[in-house]
């Protein structure tokens, strides 16, 4: 596993044969979702290289937490693709199974960001949203 930090909040990638698993951990569900989005961006480029210059608002609602994670990651993918942007800052609020977030980022600069791959969509594979050992874990496989 590739890990950005051992202590919460943190993100990591887990192996998948063809694609890439993204996992976020946090002290709250919202923080775990924000970290999962950071892991998503880290599949494309180093999140530390993405400067938060512009903000974008996102709202999602789903029947359950797992599907909310999938919807959230897909919303981030959609905004990145449509706006030709990358994001590094995720301010997430979750009430029940409704999510609202502000994404902070900047226009994609291929030379500087060296984007490795464009995510196609978040899948239901290895999908998990759960509280484990006092931390929230949010993960799934993203098709790249």
């Amino acid at each position: 596993m590739e890990s950005a930090a051992a202590a919460a909040p943190s993100w990591q990638h887990f192996s998948h044969a063809a694609d890439i698993g993204v996992q976020g951990r946090g002290r709250s569900l919202a923080e775990a979702f924000a970290m999962a989005a950071t892991a998503l961006v880290a599949a494309i480029t180093d999140p530390a290289a993405v400067i938060s210059r512009q903000s974008v608002s996102v709202v999602c609602a789903a029947p359950d937490r797992e599907m909310l994670l999938v919807d959230w990651l897909n919303a981030v993918i959609y905004e990145m693709e449509m706006r030709q942007m990358l994001f590094s800052h995720f301010d997430v609020a979750i009430e029940g199974t409704r999510l609202s977030a502000t994404l902070g980022g900047e226009p994609l600069d291929p030379e500087r960001h060296q984007p490795a791959v464009g995510p196609k969509g978040a899948t239901l594979t290895a999908l998990k949203v759960a509280e484990e050992g006092g931390l929230w874990v949010a993960q799934c496989v993203v098709d790249v």
Binding site: S15, A18, A116
Partner: peptide, 11 residues
Amino acid sequence: GRAMSRSQAAK
């Protein structure tokens, strides 16, 4: 088919 993950390859 891939023999290793993207992260492993990039490392």
